[in-house]
Design a protein around this nucleic acid. Structure first.
Lengths: 267, 267
DNA sequence: CGGCAGATTGAGACTGCTCAACATGGGTGG
DNA sequence: CCACCCATGTTGAGCAGTCTCAATCTGCCG
């Protein structure tokens, strides 16, 4: 039913004269903080730009890899591993400006799969050409290290986020994180459309689709979000933050620990 | 009780003429696969070697960082974050050959803390000197990228390991992972001493100390490990693997799904 | 010989899962 | 343009695993 409905791999259109200078993701991508001439140099390093439709794979697990790294120019991706039993384990969701394939540097096959959750465009780099260029351009070398380090930090945060706390904390964190991702990427930070299904969110958070559904209901009932299908509006970020950190009440104020205060129960 | 009993930070003995060539961790560290002359070059990059006693911190969260990376020469470390509420969140356990501080490249403060779980010795690098050297020595550049990538992959695996599955699966995985870590590092792979408390294992796996204790009991009862305090002997690695993957029985063979087969219940 | 942190063990509560039925809505073909 | 279909999402009831909160035990250290 689910799993790899779309065509096998890679592909599509070598595309237009798009370049880094005009890229909407520029601020989040490799050229962060570089001047235009360096930016142009990076532009030169892009082997080609690939467009994918929703559901198409950028690469798949155990596929032999040909030295490629990908920067997401637009759209969103999901990366996942397959267990020996064939279950899908979501390792992350990725937005414009992020790199894919960094975890496979030095290996000969891909460690996981990457699939487009929306129509998307990526810039394809050759790792070796990039490394060569970095050898000659110090700032690029630095930038690349920063990129790897940042990715490492992100992955660490994910681990922390997901390991600890109850379902509501995890999911509140997830929403806040998504919101932060959308900030500065065009869309408003408190109004966005999730590109993934409840099932996928559940896989990612270590919960089930049913639980995600119920949590959305609860949050709606508490008035901190509005939600219709995959469209989310964050109404009360402070409350979400409180839920995320496990602090149930804003200002306990005077009186006891509010044993049964008027917290609306359901939708 | 727990939490930062020891002295504040860093420190100690500039130490002996130890070098990479004779380092027991050489095979797992930066010089992987390099010839002796390159190895000597890396040796030159080590600013100093620092010895720490059990419980001492290598660095602490939010401490301003001075461009340092550390390679573990001997001993074991725990890295953790503190939540705003002061709770400790273990991000990982680290053995000889691994690098610490990679996640802070490009930042100005440490993202987390690193504390020695045993007496330990680390090699201190200056990131900038390392990067400079990599600029001149191509193989080193490559090696450094591989190091970062490998660390990223490790962190991903951790995420996968910990998010999915039940308590027994997580813990079985944890033991197997520890066992793998000890392989090729002197100690026998199936007989080792855990450097961390039940509480710390629990923090890491997203479980409680009580649960860890019970799991050890169960595993002992099933005959796949022996355990006295922190000393572990793995008796039946295959069974542990089965538990880890969620396959309850080795060969269901003929007959039903063995509703109440003779699986000894307790220790 | 205390004192104490770490480890073990027990009883009960509660969260989140399982399994299932049902609702919804977008896409397709007639 | 409508009817249908299927994937996705919602909701319910019951259950199991893990947590909580303790009491108790052990070995280590001073």
């Amino acid at each position: 039913m689910n799993r790899l409905p779309a065509s096998s791999s890679l592909a599509r259109h070598n595309a237009q004269p798009a370049n880094c200078g005009t890229c909407p993701a520029r601020a989040h991508c490799l050229p962060t903080g570089m001047n235009d001439s360096y930016c142009a140099a990076i532009d030169q390093l892009v082997e080609r730009r690939v467009q994918l439709v929703r559901g198409e794979h950028l690469y798949q697990m155990n596929e032999p890899l040909s030295d490629h790294l990908y920067a997401i120019r637009s759209g969103q991706f999901k990366t996942y591993h397959l267990t020996p039993e064939g279950e899908q384990r979501v390792t992350g969701f990725h937005m414009s400006g992020e790199f894919l394939g960094l975890d496979a540097i030095g290996l000969h096959v891909h460690r996981g799969s990457a699939v487009a959750l929306t129509n998307a465009e990526v810039c394809e780099f050759s790792y070796h050409r990039l490394a060569d260029a970095a050898q000659r351009m110090e700032p690029l070398s630095q930038l690349f290290h920063n990129l790897l380090s940042k990715e490492l930090a992100r992955q660490q945060d994910t681990t922390l986020l997901l390991r600890n706390g109850h379902a509501d904390q995890k999911f509140a964190n997830f929403l806040l994180r998504m919101s932060r991702c959308y900030t500065g990427r065009g869309s408003a930070p408190n109004l966005f459309q999730l590109p993934m299904s409840r099932q996928e969110i559940g896989d990612f958070l270590g919960l089930t689709a049913a639980t995600i559904s119920r949590l959305i209901c609860n949050f709606k009932g508490q008035g901190c979000i509005k939600a219709v299908r995959r469209n989310i509006i964050i109404l009360d970020q402070a409350m979400l933050t409180r839920i995320a950190t496990g602090t149930p009440h804003p200002a306990p104020a005077l009186g006891a620990i509010a044993p049964a205060s008027p917290v609306l129960q359901l939708a």
